[in-house]
């Protein structure tokens, strides 16, 4: 049966290697935006590709499926505290921000605060935000999350506004 072939017992889909080489870096990139650590992001990518290898997701839908799975899995790690070891490790893994983006300088502490706030956002908002900032177009985000393209902007804006407020709240209370 061609339809369910990839999901047969013990079988790994034939195109796994090809898709892995094409999309691995992007999947790590999505997860790293959530987690701020490449090592943790690579752990997430492994989980995502293991699941993909055993799935029968149509090849044409693979990029969207992988991005959504990476965002969800990484957010789950972030929320459940299934972090690799201590929080410090993920902080240490964050490279210093280039000083030339003067209008958007974000300190290491702020990055960690933004990630904590990201974990508290409604999941759909958080996923839409992460996918958009990972370079998916509005149409791609809309398709991946079954939203209208028109509502992607509203959802992303809402999430960004919440994260910015989080930064301001701390800045003003310091």
């Amino acid at each position: 049966m061609a339809v369910a072939g990839a999901a047969a017992h013990g079988a790994v889909r034939d195109d796994l290697g090809e898709v892995f080489r094409r999309d691995y870096a992007r999947v790590v990139g999505v997860a790293a935006r959530v987690l701020g650590s490449r090592d943790e992001a690579e752990d997430v990518a492994q989980e995502v590709f293991l699941a993909f290898g055993r799935s029968s997701v149509p090849a044409g839908e693979a990029p969207g499926w992988l991005s959504v799975a990476a965002a969800h899995t990484a957010l789950n790690h972030l929320r459940t505290g299934r972090r690799r070891t201590a929080r410090e490790e993920s902080l240490a893994a964050v490279p210093p921000v280039e000083p030339d983006v003067a209008d958007a300088v974000v300190t290491r502490e702020e990055r960690s605060r933004v990630r904590a706030a990201l974990g508290r956002l409604p999941k759909k908002q958080a996923v839409a935000l992460v996918l958009r900032h990972s370079g998916l177009s509005y149409t791609e985000v809309a398709t991946a999350l079954d939203m209208s393209p028109g509502s992607v902007g509203t959802t992303v804006r809402r999430a960004e506004s919440a994260l910015r407020k989080e930064l301001n709240r701390h800045a003003s209370s310091d």
Partner: peptide, 22 residues
Amino acid sequence: DARLVDSALAPAADGIDLDAAW
């Protein structure tokens, strides 16, 4: 706001070893 968040979420994902990951 979009720029600020983009900067805050900028990933630390360089230096991936694709062969090792595979």
